[in-house]
C-alpha cells in the first residue's frame, strides 16, 4: 500500500535531475480540451494515457496541459500539438489507443500521424 511519504523519494529524485529538464522555448506543448464537451466525449482517459506515455518515455521536453472548449465539440476529444517553429496539429476523436502512436510518431520522431488529424476527419 502506498503512503504519502513516498513523495519524498520522488522529490529527491527530481531534485537531482532538475537540470536535465530542457528550458523554456523549445518545449513541445500537448493540449487537451477539457470543457463539458471534451469530458463527456472521453477526454479524461485520453489525458491519462498521454501522461502515462510521456512519463514512460521520459520525454522531458514535453508539457501536457488542459484547456477549455476548442470550438468543434462534435470532434471531441481533441488534442492539439504545438511543436516550436511548426504549425499546430489538431488530432480529433481521440481515444487512449491513438495516444501511443501519436507520442511515438509525432512527439518522438517528428512525423505527424495524418490519419488522426482534423484534416483527415473533415
Amino acid at each position: 500500500m502506498k503512503t504519502l511519504a513516498e513523495l519524498q523519494a520522488i522529490r529527491d529524485r527530481m531534485r537531482s535531475q532538475i537540470d536535465l529538464r530542457e528550458a523554456g522555448d523549445d518545449r513541445i506543448r500537448v493540449v487537451v480540451g477539457m470543457a463539458t464537451c471534451g469530458i463527456a466525449a472521453g477526454a479524461r482517459p485520453v489525458l491519462n494515457a498521454l501522461l502515462e506515455e510521456v512519463n514512460k518515455r521520459e520525454l522531458k521536453n514535453v508539457t501536457v496541459s488542459q484547456t477549455g472548449c476548442i470550438g468543434v465539440c462534435r470532434l471531441e476529444p481533441i488534442v492539439e500539438v504545438y511543436v516550436p517553429g511548426q504549425e499546430k496539429v489538431t488530432y480529433v476523436k481521440m481515444t487512449p489507443d491513438k495516444v501511443a502512436s501519436i507520442v511515438s510518431e509525432h512527439l518522438v520522431n517528428g512525423r505527424v500521424v495524418e490519419e488522426y488529424t482534423i484534416g483527415a476527419a473533415e
Binding site: 511519504a5 513516498e6 520522488i10
Partner: peptide, 25 residues
Amino acid sequence: EDLRAQLGPEISLAEPEVILWIRDY
C-alpha cells in the same frame, strides 16, 4: 497541503511522475 508537505514547495503536482503517483495512490 498534505501532498505538498511531503513534496516540498518547488516541485509541481503536475509533474508527470508526481501526478501519476497521486493517481495510483
